[in-house]
Design a protein around this nucleic acid. Structure first.
Lengths: 347, 347
DNA sequence: ATTAGCACTCGCCGAGCCCGAGTGCTACCA
DNA sequence: TGGTAGCACTCGGGCTCGGCGAGTGCTAAT
């Protein structure tokens, strides 16, 4: 049976009040603050029903109610009024992305900062996944007799480079011939395919270039592996320390340890499977330390292709409406900024 | 007047006990634990004297004593027995640096992690300062008709790159001529000199290459400016949350905000002026939020030239002996690792 | 100069208490 | 039948108060 209209309003009011105050909310306060047009007794009955249905909880008998995870879930799925980010905030976000064209690393870091600033929670960003992009070209730039810079360019405009050692006795023309073969073979393949076997095949075919191939092999696989957390950017620790639920240093520590320990990485990767925004509420998180938290993740794109994931981690009592709009706007801006530099690239 | 031998021993014992337990230490505990060979009454007298001299404080009348900032200062300057890092720890640190040759970014991040792991405090690292290195060569790698990769190589083996736009009508030969002129002019100059005026001069001389010069100019100046905190790596937030003095979320927040706000950057830069290890204790820190903290900083080198700074931030009640040895070993290892890749480079 | 002894101080901790916000229930009303 | 008013009851938070004990400073003795 669907919830009566009034019960929905009551539930929504409770959640929004609790999100704002972090205090259990009682029937009297509710009618006073939210002009529900009925008496507190009526609301009390509704609250009792809602509790029976599992949408509310009582921390103890004589306190008000707080939303349960299920309550939040219903809220984000059905009750929430998407607050369309106020103009000031939106244009401030836009402005921050309109600055000069930056290195991707800087862009990621700035994005994290913006995300955290506008939500007051912890911002997480996973750098662009090279594996999802397509090999465009591999260049060699001789730096000295013994060394060269290997430059990998992908179709999303990402550039990775590494210094390699030129095997003794390998001349410049051999070097460029090597590059030509590699380029011809890998042209148009996704880097995932490259890592998946192509490179091994190539390695066998180019047995004569064994030494240099090994280095290129390392370079490719290294750039592609999920990354032991090193491309996860985390910003806003000091911000969540301001949240009432994180006044206890121990709780924060557990959460941060989990995040540093790769739990966040895992969660983001998982969320990356679906495009669009994914919300994970409280106990829905697998890791115990995160069960007092909610995570809102989204994927960002370059020219239509999903390449990375970002997220906001905060207490379960999270301002979902706000976070959703911020995450939405920020992913759009980031995707835009990245795509623009690619467009610039293809022009 | 110099402190009597016994008073020194008493002070040292108090500091070491307080560092270990975070509890005010009383006369009885002291004689019991540290076999001072005198009675508690004697120690009480000594403690009263030490308090009079400003080395100790009483949180309240009927509690034990705790060291004052001045006490810690005397301790690190004169009383401390440098504990020569136990073998296990030392070899564990060494081992962590012996892994594969890595990108500098990764190396920095790993170093921060190691530093924090072995001290249990917050680790701060400022990336290598390009300004302190010498221009070696600038290369151009055409990527498409309209774009090229600009690669700057310095004598410390650092490589920076950026994509630039090739002005319409500029052919490959013009491009390489441009590079040649730049190389000839900047050869052997420190990047600080380059930024200081050389580049402006060059810009005037190469008026014909105005468009591309502007981009190169941006590239140089951007890589050289102190960096708005973006090359400051901070690791170990969850670790300091375990320290008793940081159980109060608010205090931690203030400290972290200060760190994120650039205070740490400033402090590290300041410390970078002296080579070697610098210790700043409690109130000696300028920023109010940091006055409950101590900062141990050191500079690291590449082939004899100081290029960057790192530090450990913890509560004033810090295990100075341990931190000093760890910081010492880690800077040595980091300098070694960096220099090795340069040596590799020059070979 | 050192020590034993002793009176005194004062923060911590638990017990007991009150207050008030909030509930559930019952009786009543439209 | 759904909404309302009233009322007794619950229970956590915050208060005070007193005892405990670690630690001090002082004095007198060695």
């Amino acid at each position: 049976m669907a919830l009566s209209d009034r019960k929905q309003r009551v539930l929504r009011a409770i959640i929004e009040d609790y999100v704002a105050t972090a205090q259990p909310v009682g029937s009297a306060t509710l009618v006073r603050k939210y002009r529900l047009g009925v008496s507190s007794a009526t609301v009390r009955n509704d609250m009792a029903d809602l509790e029976g249905l599992g949408y509310l909880e009582q921390p103890h008998t004589s306190a008000g109610r707080i939303p349960s995870d299920l309550g939040y879930r219903l809220y984000v799925d059905a009750l929430m009024r998407q607050s369309p980010l106020d103009e000031v905030r939106l244009s401030s976000i836009r402005a921050q992305f309109e600055a000069r064209i930056r290195e991707i690393e800087d862009l990621i870091r700035d994005t994290a900062r913006i995300l955290s600033e506008h939500t007051n929670y912890l911002a997480l960003i996973l750098g662009p996944k090279l594996a999802r992009t397509v090999f465009r070209t591999l260049r060699m730039l001789p730096l000295s007799e013994h060394q060269a810079l290997l430059v990998l360019v992908t179709d999303a405009g990402f550039i990775e480079s590494a210094v390699i050692e030129i095997p003794a006795g390998m001349g410049p023309d051999q070097l460029s011939r090597f590059a030509t073969v590699v380029n011809q073979t890998l042209q148009g393949k996704t880097l995932a395919q490259v890592a998946d076997g192509l490179i091994t095949a190539l390695r066998q075919n180019l047995a004569e270039y064994r030494d240099i191939m090994d280095q290129a092999f390392d370079f490719f696989t290294q750039g592609l592996e999920p990354g032991d957390g090193k491309d996860l950017t985390v910003v806003g620790t000091s911000r969540i320390l301001g949240q009432p639920e994180f006044q206890d240093a121990n709780k924060v520590r557990q959460v941060l340890q989990a995040v540093e320990g790769g739990v966040a990485l895992e969660a983001l990767n998982e969320a990356a499977e679906d495009d669009g925004i994914v919300i994970t509420i409280g106990r829905e998180n697998r890791h115990p330390a995160m069960q007092g938290c909610s995570l809102v993740t989204a994927t960002y794109r370059v020219g239509g292709r999903t390449v990375g994931t970002l997220g906001v981690l905060g207490p379960t009592r999270m301002d979902y409406a706000r976070v959703l709009s911020v995450v939405h706007s920020v992913t759009e801006c980031l995707s835009g900024a990245l795509s623009r530099s690619v467009q610039f690239w293809y022009r």
